[in-house]
Amino acid sequence: MLILARRIGESIMIGDQVELTVVDIKGDQVKLGINAPSQVKVYRREVYAAIQEENRAAASAAPQTLPSLQGLMGRNPPAAPGGISPAGKPPAPPAAPGGTSPKKDPPAR
């Protein structure tokens, strides 16, 4: 790891488009300013790590643990607000996935 000492107001460049500036230091907290092109994503590392971890936990779900919300709630859940599935779509049997909206769309021309 490259380690550089910087004072308040000083910067480092990462490549020629990303500039990282030490804006303020208070106790053990450092405020950083970041100038980067919009296609460079900047996240707090823990946010990124939390999503990675959640994906891993989600991916390992056993299919038989998936309940129906109706069953869990003991009554009919509210109708899904429009958007992803055609209104009134009946539950599709597992062997015939039919209702996902990408399928319903005409092919892009």
């Binding site: 999503i51 990675q52 971890e53 919300l69 599709a92 990408p102």
Partner: peptide, 22 residues
Amino acid sequence: LFGFEDLRDFALLDAAQQPFYW
């Protein structure tokens, strides 16, 4: 996806249990 950067091809399926998808 985050944590699964090497996987690119997926299929979207209706789950047998509404309102879920796989």
